[in-house]
């Protein structure tokens, strides 16, 4: 079988360490597959175009951040809710609970079959301002990607600002934004520590789950044996190892940014690690559950809120009213 595969950001560890080896070695080694692998940034694809083009059969397999596709599928925002999962294990449990919903969404909206869901590192907050609690974010300008994160920030009294990744360092330095949300590792390698002082190690931007999906026509044309082979291989050869390293990566990246612990990626920096009190955390979570999630339920429409309550909600102990 010839497969044309579009990977996620080529410069990030998920692609380099897991996607690329899986598609170029593991899968071809396990069965009769010939894979052509590129990435969406190498192709110059618009972020919101990746899954719609997959559905049209422009390529066979695509993987990218689910959040990029919520413009076409607001119900998909429920996969990656900020603040609910603090560790990789919790995030994993959320994803497993959400999987049947995600599969339905991809079939209906993008004519695609979901094969795997892997995490980018949690989306933490870099601030060039003194931050000691969530309430300190009020009145600050925060760069966030993703609509639910932006709405959550607004509910906290902060102002969501849309700045592209490349312009963040300048914007932080100059006060165009006071804080910015991204993966701890990306912020470390892009030098955000140069222009910010405080690190809030809470996944305010969620985990940015990367969904791997195959064009549904292509998937249905595979024999059941091949389908099973692909599912088994991608679960053991890609998804498991990616999740297994997620927690360690977070610990390492935070160590690199703040100097608390061993940094395996290079020189450790000295950002201030902000410790959020339990009471403060509960207040923020209250805002999330009371305002932001009901908003989403309305945006998504249908019975999505009910389905979410019965699956993800059970795992994290949250019910959308």
């Amino acid at each position: 079988e010839d497969l044309s595969v579009v990977g996620s950001w080529s410069s990030l560890p998920l692609h380099k360490a897991y996607e690329a080896p899986f598609w170029s070695e593991t899968l071809p080694g396990a069965g009769d597959f010939k894979v052509e692998l590129t990435t969406h940034n190498q192709m110059g694809l618009g972020l919101s175009e990746i899954y719609p083009l997959l559905g049209q059969g422009v390529y066979d397999v695509a993987m990218t951040v689910a959040d990029y596709a919520v413009g076409d599928a607001p119900e998909l925002e429920g996969l990656d809710v900020p603040l609910l999962a603090l560790t990789a294990d919790e995030a994993r449990a959320m994803v497993d609970a959400a999987r049947p919903m995600v599969a339905d969404i991809y079939r209906a909206r993008f004519n695609a079959e979901v094969l795997a869901i892997a995490p980018y590192p949690p989306q933490v907050v870099f601030c060039n301002a003194e931050i000691n609690s969530f309430s300190d974010l009020a009145g600050l300008k925060v760069r966030a990607s993703g609509r639910m994160t932006a709405l959550f920030l607004e509910a906290l009294g902060a102002e969501g600002v849309n700045v592209s990744f490349s312009e963040v360092p300048g914007a932080l330095q100059n006060g165009v934004v006071d804080c910015a949300v991204t993966g701890a590792g990306s912020g470390y390698s892009a030098g955000w520590w140069e222009v910010s002082t405080h690190l809030l190690p809470i996944p305010l931007g969620g985990w940015d789950h990367v969904v791997t999906a195959m064009n549904a026509d292509r998937w249905n044309a595979l024999s059941p044996d091949k389908q099973n082979l692909v599912r088994d291989q991608i679960s053991s050869g890609f998804e498991e190892p990616a999740w297994a390293s997620a927690q360690d990566a977070l610990v390492n990246d935070i160590a690199c940014l703040t100097g608390n612990g061993e940094c395996a990626s290079g020189d450790a920096r000295d950002m201030v690690l902000v410790d959020i009190s339990d009471a403060d955390f509960e207040t923020a979570r209250g805002i999330l559950v009371g305002d932001v999630l009901p908003d989403w339920a309305e945006r998504a429409g249908g019975d999505w809120a009910a389905r979410w309550n019965d699956s993800v909600g059970q795992v994290v102990g949250v019910t959308i009213k």
Partner: peptide
């Protein structure tokens, strides 16, 4: 056509 059918909205504030 896709934007019209899906009622697509930009993934921004």
């Amino acid at each position: 056509a896709r934007a019209v059918e899906n009622g697509s909205r930009a993934n921004t504030p």
